[in-house]
Computed example of a mutant assay.
Amino acid sequence: MAESIPKRLKTEPISIGTHNGHFHADEALAVYMLRLLPTYKSAQLIRTRDPALLKTCHTVVDVGGEYDEGSNRYDHHQRGFDTTFDNRPTKLSSAGLVFKHFGKPIIAQNMGASEDAEEVDSVYKKLYTDFVEALDAHDNGISAYDPKAVSTAGLEKRFDEGGFSLGAMVGRLNPSWNDPVSTDPAEAQKAEDEKFVIASQRIGEEFSRALEKLTKSWLPAREIVHAAYAERLKHDPSGRIMVLSGGSVPWSDHLYTREAQDGTDSKVLYVLYPEKPVPEAKWRIQCVPVSRGSFESRKSLPEAWRGFRDDKLDEISGIDGCVFVHAAGFIGGNKTFEGAKAMAVKALQ
């Protein structure tokens, strides 16, 4: 497969420049992504804010006050910078800039496909919104919700999730204020750089896992979900029950996309699938969330069923073979497909 973007690059030796001092998730990921490509695989890393040294670097990320694809400069801190990913509102960080320009070659290389393949483009867009965009927002100080709207609504956080992010993970790998520091500037910089390399590898591993999950699991599930959607009327005349006979696959994204393309007002409410791809497997009934990432269901399972199991649930529901219904009402189970379908049909009423 041709690596089209790096064909523009200069000759060896290749060096990647970024700033020294306290490091962040965006440049840690930017450096990792570049090093996935053959051109940068053995690139030297130079961490400095010295303009003279940065000028010698082949590619510079997150420092230098310049965004210029032609000269491989990918900073986002300069006044007036407002570049975003295609059809997304979030201002890019160095991670987003590198992904915008090098994401397709990285994905195409991983998939063994052409950069202009439709599958590559699908993964490219999905990987940005699922992984990279949150890092862009975090580095640019953009909240997931409009702070004014949150304040007007009187909403308060139930807990602090600040430490539960990739940005926080990278932040914890920075040297602490009271760590011993060598009096030799070169040794001190070397120690700091070593910590940055660890951080870049750590966040990069998560990026690679996300990419692998999309290419090996999410993308192949698309055809399965679309086929099940096309056959949904066999299970419910109004199309509110969808059956994934082959097992549980990542279905929600593909279902929402297919519904949007279809433009129907009759949305799928329940998805049925076997727990395992074997004939004797138990079946699950799962409620479709109102939107991507929501914990609210379009139509929850009946309140009277929630929190009950086995024979007691059989008695309450009037359906044989029940296994459970979650106390929150978003998922349940039955010993057979017929039983799970009966639960879905009755829940529709």
Rank of each mutant, 00 (worst) to 15 (best):
Ser151Arg: 13
Ser266Arg: 12
Glu303Ile: 12
Thr215Cys: 13
His19Tyr: 11
Val225Cys: 03
Thr215Ser: 07
Ala144Pro: 02
Leu54Asp: 06
Gln261Tyr: 07
Ala186Gly: 11
Leu135Phe: 09
Phe330Lys: 05
His58Pro: 00
Lys341Cys: 13
Gly204Cys: 08
Tyr74Asp: 00
Pro185Lys: 02
Glu212Asp: 15
Leu155Gly: 03
Glu192Lys: 13
Gln44Arg: 13
Met242Trp: 11
Phe295Asp: 06
Ala342Gln: 10
Val225Lys: 00
Leu166Arg: 10
Trp218Phe: 09
His138Gly: 04
Ile46Val: 15
Asp136His: 08
Phe159Met: 06
His138Glu: 14
Glu259Val: 04
Leu233Pro: 03
Gly17Ser: 11
Ile16Arg: 02
Trp283Cys: 01
Ile106Val: 13
Asp310Ala: 14
Ala227His: 12
Gly65Cys: 07
Glu231Val: 02
His138Phe: 15
Cys287Gly: 05
Pro277Leu: 09
Asp320Asn: 07
Tyr270Glu: 03
Tyr74Ser: 00
Ala281Arg: 07
Ser252Ile: 12
Ala134Ser: 15
Lys195Glu: 11
Val61Cys: 05
Leu29Tyr: 01
Val61Phe: 06
Arg240Val: 01
Cys322Gln: 10
Asp310Cys: 07
Thr215Phe: 04
Ala149Ile: 13
Ala340Arg: 00
Lys41Gln: 13
Arg222His: 06
Ala342Tyr: 03
Gly103Pro: 00
Ser182Val: 05
Ile5Val: 14
